[in-house]
Amino acid sequence: MAYSSQAQEILETFSEVPDSSKLDLLLEFADGLPDLPVRYQDHPELLERVEECQSPVFLFVEVDEKVHIYLTAPKEAPTTRGFAAILQSALDNQVPSEVLAFDDAFVNELGLTKLVSPLRIRGMNGMLHRIKRQVRQKLDAS
């Protein structure tokens, strides 16, 4: 398994609380999703739509020595925002090789599959795959 320390911490936090509190935790992540930086707020064309999500989720990845991840999702879609915030916390500021090696099993290991619909989980997988693809493309281009 290859997880960043932040990701490991998130998994531990979710595993420590009972199922009944996992959704509250997800909501805390949703509330904490940072706004897009101003340079992207006015440039929607730079953002990639995550088609796997039912709600409009957009993302953009910057790669220098580290990977910087920007995600946005509407307030009316807190579950999606929560998933976006979890991935952002787990992957932001990692070196590219770590992001690419990040284990896809993470999404299932959060223990939310019983509580949210499979389509939602699929949406989160979609975000993760698109983040990795953007990282790969940007490494190739540099």
Binding site: L23, L27, Q54, S55, E76, A77, P78, T80, L115, V116
Partner: peptide, 9 residues
């Protein structure tokens, strides 16, 4: 709701 967290917001 479709988004099951909305009620809590």
């Amino acid at each position: 709701d479709e988004d099951i967290l909305l009620y809590s917001t």
